[in-house]
């Protein structure tokens, strides 16, 4: 392509990226270092509301000459970041003198910084990524191989059913799972009938983590499956035939031919899933809608919940982006090296 026409082709998409991604991101960056609030004064007023008339002292916004509320804007430097990460309290929690057995002391050292919302959220997010990623890769590969074995009539319905958890809107999918696990609902009753006793999945944050992780795997595995399924269709016949001639067993063919062929797709699925895992919101909202003991949170939900204060929310958003980058860098570096070595 001539060098002159290239910018013309790229321009629309570049403009869209600047307008829709770069500018809002800069805006968030600006907000993260600012704060604004209304100037309040406490006044004594007579309030008439059901069921009574009372005189009370209430804070009220101070108005300017034109009758608009007076708002103070200030540049706060890193204060928003300090507020969300609360290094002082985190350090105090870490360095406090402790008694008891080693296990108790370790648990206390772990539990106390986690009580700070941001660190609590930070704890579960990577756990979610680390727990679900290998599971969806394995399950996706297994499904792709299994569907590959189903002949003719069964293949279509198998693919359709397998994709359902991925296609259906996450809120609906998460609800459909939660309803099975409520008190005396289908899954709870079935597990009890199977002799496992009454299991309360929703009783606290630790117990809730299991259905949320399982939901994450259930929801994302079909994505890995469909990518690997497509990858299998492009497997070169010659390599398999050559492997057969060489007397390679099924396991050897799987390892050296199929997995070697699918390797770039494994990187691709991992990359997409890690990014997706960072913005998991629906199951958290649906399963708990809140924070529980030992904090069941997720960074996205935390940002949504920072007291409707978009300045601290911006600071946590920036911190989250930094977190995503940290997790993505190893994968990107690996992909880059693989590409460069070709």
């Amino acid at each position: 392509m001539p060098t002159r026409t290239f910018p013309g082709f790229v321009a629309p998409s570049l403009a869209a990226m600047v307008l829709l991604i770069a500018l809002p991101l800069l805006g968030v960056g600006w907000l993260a270092f600012h704060n604004a609030y209304l100037v309040m004064e406490v006044v004594e007023v007579e309030t008439r509301s059901p069921p009574e008339v009372k005189v009370e002292r209430v804070p009220r916004a101070v108005l300017d000459a034109e009758g608009r509320p007076l708002r103070v804007w200030e540049r706060v430097g890193g204060r928003n970041f300090v507020n969300i990460t609360d290094p002082e309290r985190a350090w105090a929690a870490l360095s406090a003198p402790r008694t008891g057995s080693l296990g108790e002391r370790l648990r206390a050292v772990w539990a106390e910084p986690i009580a700070i919302d941001f660190w609590g959220a930070l704890e579960f997010t990577p756990l979610y990524v680390l727990a679900t990623t290998p599971a969806i890769l394995l399950l996706g590969l297994g499904l792709a191989l299994a569907v590959d074995r189903t002949a003719g009539l069964l293949e279509g319905p198998s693919i359709f059913l397998s994709l359902l958890p991925f296609i259906v809107t996450p809120v609906v999918g998460a609800l459909s799972i939660k309803w099975l696990f409520l008190d005396d609902a289908v899954a709870s009753v079935a597990l009890e009938a199977a002799g496992l006793g009454k299991i309360y999945f929703l009783k606290n944050a630790l117990a809730l983590r299991l259905p949320i992780l399982l939901y994450g795997i259930w929801h994302a595995a079909p994505f890995a499956f469909v990518v690997f399924h497509a990858g299998l269709q492009t497997l070169p016949k010659e390599s398999i035939e050559a492997a057969l001639v060489d007397g390679a067993s099924w396991g050897q063919r799987l390892r050296h031919v199929v997995l070697a062929h699918l390797a770039p797709l494994v990187t691709f699925v991992t990359l997409i899933h890690v990014m997706d895992a960072y913005r998991v919101l629906e199951p958290i909202l649906v399963f708990s809608g809140g924070h529980l003991a030992d904090s069941l949170q997720h960074l996205t939900y935390y940002i949504l919940n920072t007291e409707q204060n978009y300045f601290t929310a911006s600071a946590s958003a920036l911190s989250t982006i930094a977190g995503v980058l940290v997790l993505l860098v190893p994968i990107l570096v690996r992909a880059w090296r693989a590409e460069a070595s070709r």
């Binding site: 919302d117 606290n204 944050a205 529980l292 003991a293 030992d294 007291e307 204060n309 300045f311």
Partner: peptide
Amino acid sequence: GDFLAGGESAKKSLDDAVADYRKAAEEQ
């Protein structure tokens, strides 16, 4: 919820709540 789940004392849960409240109220 941290207290009700048995993770910490009542006083500690409420002190945590007060600390979080102070932060938010100062910002606003």
